[in-house]
């Protein structure tokens, strides 16, 4: 069976109706997911206007993953992920202004125009970045967790990657050492069904990605990624296990991207019906419906959030538009910590 269809079935199966968390939690999830969605829509528009260049991989459809992870973590925990990372960064507290300005390549961007779409970093909230080499962040996240254990903290590192990266050798080397050394690492595979244009089933005999953890005796589970509730629950459970000193945990979170791999991808490798079927389970719509139906908040409160987010994103675009590009001499900054490094300039 096609993996994407299979994912959809599982996503449907785990749908929850009764509210389990307080009002603040639901509204925070809703607001963050909406912020990510509106940010990405506006980024796509700016890309079309050629104001954003380079590669641009948007997170539309996957918002519930970021929302559910963030609500289940505590301050001090770290996150590292791959290049589809605007949503993760916003979840980590990167402002829409600093994120949009980065996409515009402006010096007010979160990394001063040095990273662009694939490389946001935010040291203050322990966001170790968007990594552009598929799977390279898996050992790095393992090392971030290693350092936490070495320092004797109870922090963990959420190490995220896609279904494509799950086939890199780096994953197996990391899983092995993390289990062997009982490192505080929560591995999360965001399985959106496609490694660029290649569906999961076309590159493997083991389409259930969570099973890759089982070979190392790592606790491993599949999670519905279209619901912030299910993501939160799974992450909270895993974090408890990790903080108890029992070592790493692996979650395969099944999600879906509505857009192509990157802006330049028309996504002809999948059917319109498949995409539409996921949009019916849209995490933002479903969460909004649940909030209203269960009387968690009023439609006025929801509208207020919508307006707030809309204004925030517009402000971010204005900020990005009005900011300056970095001075060309900045090219020589941040290559070395050594301030007087003798660059070859002839």
């Amino acid at each position: 069976m096609d993996t994407a269809v299979e994912n959809k079935k599982k996503a449907t199966r785990k749908k929850t109706n009764k509210p389990k968390y307080n009002k603040e939690t639901y509204l925070n999830w809703y607001e963050l997911m909406l912020r990510i969605r509106r940010f990405e829509e506006r980024a796509l528009m700016a890309y079309g206007q050629q104001k954003i260049r380079g590669f641009c991989h948007v997170y539309i459809g996957q918002e519930a993953v970021s929302a559910g992870i963030e609500s289940a973590l505590k301050p001090g925990d770290a996150i590292v992920t791959a290049y589809r990372q605007h949503g993760i960064a916003l979840g980590r507290g990167v402002s829409a202004k600093a994120a949009m300005a980065e996409l515009y390549g402006k010096k007010t961007g979160i990394v001063k125009g040095k990273g662009g779409s694939m490389h946001f970093f935010f040291a203050e909230n322990k966001y170790f970045g968007g990594n552009g080499i598929v799977g390279a962040q898996i050992p790095i996240g393992t090392g971030i967790g290693f350092a936490e254990k070495y320092k004797g903290t109870d922090n963990l590192c959420v190490t995220m990657f896609g279904d494509g990266a799950a086939r890199q050798g780096a994953l197996h080397e990391s899983f092995n050492m993390a289990m062997s050394w009982k490192l505080p690492v929560l591995y999360i595979c965001e399985n959106n069904g496609y490694a660029m244009g290649t569906s999961v089933g076309r590159t493997t005999n083991v389409a259930d990605i969570y099973k890759l953890g089982l070979g190392y005796d790592m606790p491993s589970e599949q999670v519905d990624g279209m619901s912030p509730e299910s993501v939160h629950e799974a992450v909270a459970k895993a974090a408890k296990h990790i903080r108890a000193g029992k070592g790493p945990y692996f979650l395969e979170i099944q999600t879906y991207r509505y857009k192509g791999h990157s802006v330049s991808d028309p996504a002809k490798y999948r059917t319109k019906e498949e995409v539409e079927s996921y949009k019916e389970k849209d995490p933002i719509k479903v969460t909004e419906k649940g909030i209203i139906a269960n009387k968690i908040a009023t439609s006025q409160e929801i509208n207020k959030i919508k307006e707030k987010v809309k204004a925030e994103i517009e402000e971010a675009v204005t900020f990005a538009e009005n900011s300056d590009f970095p001075d060309p001499s900045g090219l020589y900054e941040d290559n070395y910590m050594q301030k007087d490094y003798p660059f070859i300039k002839d």
Partner: peptide, 26 residues
């Protein structure tokens, strides 16, 4: 053994672990 660590034969993995540890203060 906390500070002098034998690794499996996994150069990519343990080098990346080193990079992550360096980014996180070691």
């Amino acid at each position: 053994p906390r500070r002098v660590i034998d690794t499996p034969i996994a150069e990519l993995g343990f080098t990346g672990i080193g990079v992550g540890a360096a980014m996180n203060g070691l």
